[in-house]
Each structure stands twice: as structure tokens, then as C-alpha cells.
């Protein structure tokens, strides 16, 4: 869950207070629907992740390559999985150590 908390922190920074309230960043929250992401937000999170992790994550590219419903339904959990896959391929067992 450490990675989830890191990602959630970045999302909170990008999203900012929503009408004065901190947005509920849960694993099942969708970026587009629940967090009101637009294409600019996606690029900002991409840049923030790259700065934080010290490596390019290609989030915007990944999401834009998906089917419409997969983009609309892309959740915080999907984002964490993507970062995990890109950033820690060794831990998933399918990347070089």
C-alpha cells in the first residue's frame, strides 16, 4: 500500500481542494468521473509521477491507448498498477532486475 499512498499524495496535489474539500482518493475512484480529470490533469500527474519516482511512467500515453470505456473507467487502482508495472518490473516477476 506504500505505492498507493505515494500515488494518492500526488493526485491530491494535482487535484487540489475540490470546492474546498479534499477529494476522496480511494482505489476505486475513477480519474475522469470521480476526480474530474481532463487531459491536462493527466499530463500533470504524469509529470509529477516522473519527478517523484525519477523515471518516466508514460501514464498519459498508456491511458490514451485504451478503449473508451477503459479510459472513462480508469481508476486510482489502475494507475497504481500501471506505475507498479513500469517502475518495479522486477517485483512483478516479468521484468529484468
Amino acid at each position: 500500500m506504500a505505492l498507493f499512498e505515494e500515488v494518492a499524495g500526488i493526485l491530491r496535489e494535482v487535484v487540489g481542494p475540490c470546492g474546498g474539500c479534499p477529494p476522496p482518493i480511494t482505489p476505486n475512484a475513477t480519474l475522469e468521473g470521480d476526480l474530474r480529470f481532463d487531459s491536462i490533469d493527466l499530463v500533470r500527474v504524469d509529470a509529477a509521477l516522473a519527478a517523484h519516482l525519477g523515471t518516466r511512467v508514460g501514464l498519459a500515453e498508456h491511458v490514451r491507448g485504451l478503449e473508451l470505456d477503459a479510459i472513462s473507467g480508469f481508476t486510482v487502482s489502475d494507475l497504481v498498477d500501471h506505475v507498479h508495472h513500469v517502475h518495479h518490473p522486477d517485483r512483478t516477476g516479468n521484468g529484468a532486475a
Partner: peptide, 9 residues
Amino acid sequence: AGHGLAAIR
């Protein structure tokens, strides 16, 4: 209603 791609769909 809605927004983003969901609204376009």
C-alpha cells in the same frame, strides 16, 4: 450529463 469521454459516448 457527465463530462469527459463518458459525455462524448
